[in-house]
Design a binder for these strands. Structure first.
Lengths: 208, 208
DNA sequence: GGCATAACATACAGTCTGTATGTAAGTCGA
DNA sequence: TCGACTTACATACAGACTGTATGTTATGCC
């Protein structure tokens, strides 16, 4: 009978509080940095207390991980939206690259995903995030390009990681004011250089 | 009269104390991380007090910057030692790459220089460090390779940054247990892929 | 020798993180 | 629908750390 306005199920409460905390943290982590953002500041922005934060997240780092996860997902979505599977291999790669660079222009994203993320969560944890979201499409694009014989057969994981890293650096440089065209040109050259052309082969690799 | 044993000039004192602090901090920053290492711990390891630390360095971050600078210098030295100017352009690039990957195998260096460094000091500050030490030789190698027509003419700064970033990722992956051969193979492919256009790379015409 | 200054050591204030404890609201079986 | 139990918080607290202010000792210099 009583349609209590304030009455919400526990699940709704949890969901709303978590979302508020993540949103507030995201804003502060991107405006400043992980280290410069304190939990008191976050909870004020979220309209709750530190008790709520530590009820829903193990620690500040876990909250940060949730923010990173969400942001990586957002970037991946933008990329997927820009490179439909209808595109041909090379075009898909290029469209995806451009979409990535565009997505990373959102202020604070580079620091969150490329600087603080690896430092706070560790490279291994960030690799897991990337493989879940960002790098997945890149990797698939590379595999497709290899099948289409547009890219030499190379160890896929290593190639994916290194190309992604080059993308990352491009995003950072562009945000810092470097010429986006320069970086885009080099990116293209790197990708096109991978085609299995009749070039001189790499010499036998002596790893050490 | 009294030939005080402990008598040392101020310059010597400063130099010794700074060196002790940097060495102790280096050890702890590489064993753990910047965030997990406190100044009380550092000064105990260095055999001084926090007063000495804050006398010689503006703050914890400045001490960290000194450690990073020293470590980047050490890496650059190892690379220079491995790629004498007598080498031909492509060989010099490859020797330098291998030397870099070898140097980065020293435990903790990747975290210090590739994770904590950019996060704590910012990408801009780390770029300055890299340009002073590490990337310098890479950039010179690329310029030489371009002159020898072994590498396409591309924006040098962008190319240097992106290749360096790929190297960095390789170093991180290898430390994390990935196949060094895989990464080296991709590295070679990336470099060789840069040779100008369809024609097989011309015989290097000795730089200048 | 004595003053100025550098090189520290000690003491302190403020802030932050994580935890422990307390309270209100929701869930659920009987 | 009532009471036990659990969840979702808020409040209070302990410990640690950073940076600064102040005090002390050693050196440089005239």
């Amino acid at each position: 009978m009583q349609q209590d306005f304030g009455r919400r199920s526990n699940r709704d409460r949890t969901e709303a509080t978590r979302a508020d905390l993540i949103a507030a943290a995201r804003k502060l982590f991107t405006e400043k940095s992980y280290a410069e953002t304190g939990t008191p500041e976050i909870v004020v922005a979220a309209g709750v207390t530190r008790g709520a934060l530590y009820h829903h997240f193990a620690d500040k780092q876990a909250l940060f991980a949730a923010v990173v996860e969400q942001e990586a997902q957002a970037v991946a979505d933008e990329i997927d939206r820009a490179s439909p599977p209808s595109l041909e291999a090379r075009d898909a790669l290029i469209a995806g690259s451009d979409a990535y660079l565009a997505a990373m222009r959102l202020p604070g994203r580079t620091r969150l995903l490329l600087l603080d993320g690896p430092a706070v969560l560790g490279r291994a944890a960030m690799d897991a995030v990337d493989n879940r979201h960002g790098n997945r499409s890149l990797r698939e694009g590379l595999v497709a390009a290899m099948r289409a014989n547009m890219v030499a057969r190379l160890p896929v994981d290593a190639l994916t990681a290194m190309l992604a890293s080059a993308f990352d650096r491009a995003a950072l440089a562009i945000e810092a004011g470097a010429s986006a065209e320069d970086y885009r040109a080099v990116l293209m050259a790197l990708i096109d250089g991978l085609s299995p052309a009749p070039r001189q082969a790499a010499r036998p690799a002596r790893t050490r």
